[in-house]
Computed example of a mutant assay.
Amino acid sequence: IIGNGYVSFLQMLVVPLIFVSLVRAFTRVEGENNLGKIGFNVLAVLIITVAVASVIGLSIALLFNLDGAEFTQGAAETARIAYIQERQAEIADTTLPQQILSFIPTNIFEDLAGLRQSSNIAVVIFSAFVGVAYLGVARKHPEEASYFKKMIDMLDAIVSRIVTLVLRMAPYGIFALMVKAMASSSFQALLNMATFVIAAYVAIIIMFAIHA
């Protein structure tokens, strides 16, 4: 409960952080001179970095000879592997225009709930629309826009506080996850997990360097 609960709390933060952070970024923009360039850069950087991260993940998996099926053989892992294989087959039959169209939100509440594979990107696009709309309102009705800006600033403060509260659980959540792994895995499985952790850190360090 403690370990999986901590992971669930982390997942809970993703969509609120994306939405509030991006909209707040627009509320801090002065003027609309470079709005199109800013919006294009946000989406382009997001898509490019996701693509780069995917290539790095695949390269590290091949370099370290990682095979997720070898780590554990539980029912949950087997079901997850089957789902990934099914998803790979679906993507293989999807054209590039169809994949691009899947990023566009048709029901933002569905994407806020994370019910689609491309929900995060859809939330980014919706957030950009909200930000652009705010700038238009700020130009014509500055008083109404100021109320919205205050609301977003308040939401940002609340979400930041929630992040702090969740991160305070990290020592307990990580400890519980480690104890569970140690108690329920064989020695060989632990060695495999150690290899995975090292590979993950290598990939993360590479991504940090790219972002820097």
Rank of each mutant, 00 (worst) to 15 (best):
Q73L: 05
L135T: 11
G39V: 14
D67W: 05
L58Q: 11
I47M: 15
F129Q: 02
I60K: 03
A51P: 13
S119I: 01
G114M: 01
E70K: 06
L63P: 03
G68F: 13
E90C: 00
L46A: 10
N120H: 09
L66W: 10
I108D: 02
S119P: 09
L58A: 07
Y134R: 00
L112Y: 08
P97G: 02
V132N: 01
A133T: 13
D67E: 08
A133E: 15
E77C: 00
L62M: 13
A61S: 12
Y83D: 12
V130D: 06
L43G: 01
R116Y: 11
G114T: 06
R116C: 05
P105I: 05
I100S: 02
I121G: 03
A76P: 02
E90T: 05
N65E: 08
I125F: 15
I108A: 01
F109T: 15
G68P: 02
Q85V: 06
I104H: 04
E110I: 14
E77P: 00
G131E: 04
F126C: 12
Y134A: 02
V55K: 01
N107H: 14
L46I: 13
V50Q: 09
T94I: 12
R80P: 05
I60D: 06
E86C: 00
V123R: 00
L63I: 14
A44L: 09
A61Y: 15
A113W: 10
G57W: 09
I84C: 02
P105T: 13
V124E: 07
F126H: 07
T72M: 07
I84Q: 04
D111E: 14
T49H: 07
N120F: 03
A44V: 10
F109V: 11
I84K: 03
I47P: 00
V42H: 07
I60V: 14
A133P: 10
D93M: 03
S118Y: 10
A128H: 13
I56M: 08
T94E: 11
Y83N: 10
Q85E: 10
I100P: 10
I125L: 12
V52F: 14
I84M: 14
I104Q: 01
F40G: 01
D111H: 00
G74M: 00
V55S: 02
I125W: 08
A133Y: 14
I48T: 15
G114H: 05
L101M: 09
L46P: 00
I56C: 07
I91P: 01
Y83R: 02
I81E: 08
